[in-house]
């Protein structure tokens, strides 16, 4: 088994007084795609924000290539090679499409991804590169958000609910592009509401329920019954 790129151990994440995660353990092998599923409020986004450094935790609770990163700030985490495609896309409204992509690449990490490469993946963005990011459709904005994360040439990319609020045809296009992205030696964590999609793209799946891991397994072998039990907490 290859070395794990990400190890999460006993993660208790909090928002102020509210505890959102309880002792979450998770391992991601280099080059793997891991899917996280769970109902609304199960803690999926909290987990993503914790990995990305937007929520600070105990240093050892999250390790990236065996280095503790749990207590680092988001910008420090980003410079180590983790990029987040946040829920709701969250583009910079004052920046044009191209500027949004450029700012993603400002850390200067070397790798396969460049402006040119992103434009060849999503040609529509090149046509609209001078436009304000707010003028794009939801699907195009999601492409910018993904492109912005890729521009950082991360070793680990986190996708938080990339299909939320998008038309089915757009979701299909984005999911078609994903394997090409991840096969570039990148590892990925994907949070997805659509369980079928999550299983199809990932090699391992974790289910969160009320802040705890309720199921973990290989995406090809977990049964639907196990998932619905873990998802809804029905015994």
């Amino acid at each position: 088994m290859p070395d794990p790129i990400l190890q999460i151990a006993g993660l208790d994440a909090r928002y102020g007084d509210f505890q959102a995660l309880y002792g979450v353990d998770m391992t991601l092998a280099e080059g793997d795609v891991l899917a996280i599923i769970g109902a609304n409020g199960a803690g999926k986004t909290t987990l993503m924000r914790s990995i990305a450094g937007l929520i600070r935790n105990g240093a050892d609770e999250i390790k990236f290539r065996n280095v503790p990163i749990g207590a680092l700030r988001a910008d420090q985490v980003a410079r180590r090679g983790i990029a987040l495609v946040p829920e709701g896309r969250q583009l910079f409204p004052s920046l044009s499409v191209e500027e949004n992509l450029l700012i993603g690449g400002r850390s200067g990490r070397q790798g396969p991804w460049s402006l040119k490469r992103v434009y060849s993946l999503f040609p529509i963005l090149e046509e609209r590169k001078r436009q304000p990011s707010t003028s794009l459709s939801g699907g195009q904005q999601q492409m910018v958000a993904i492109g912005r994360a890729l521009m950082a040439n991360p070793d680990l990319i986190l996708f938080d609910e990339i299909s939320l609020g998008l038309a089915p045809i757009v979701i299909r296009d984005i999911y078609r592009a994903l394997p090409g992205i991840v096969s570039q030696g990148m590892s990925a964590v994907i949070v997805e509401q659509d369980i079928t999609k999550a299983l199809s793209i990932s090699s391992r799946v974790y289910c969160l329920q009320e802040g705890r891991v309720s199921l973990e397994g290989a995406s090809t072998t977990v049964s639907r019954e196990d998932i619905s039990r873990a998802y809804f907490g029905i015994e």
């Binding site: 990305a52 937007l54 980003a78 946040p86 910079f92 409204p93 993603g104 850390s107 950082a152």
Partner: peptide
Amino acid sequence: DNQDIAQLMGL
């Protein structure tokens, strides 16, 4: 625009 997301860009 957004401090948190800007931090994600390594700023």
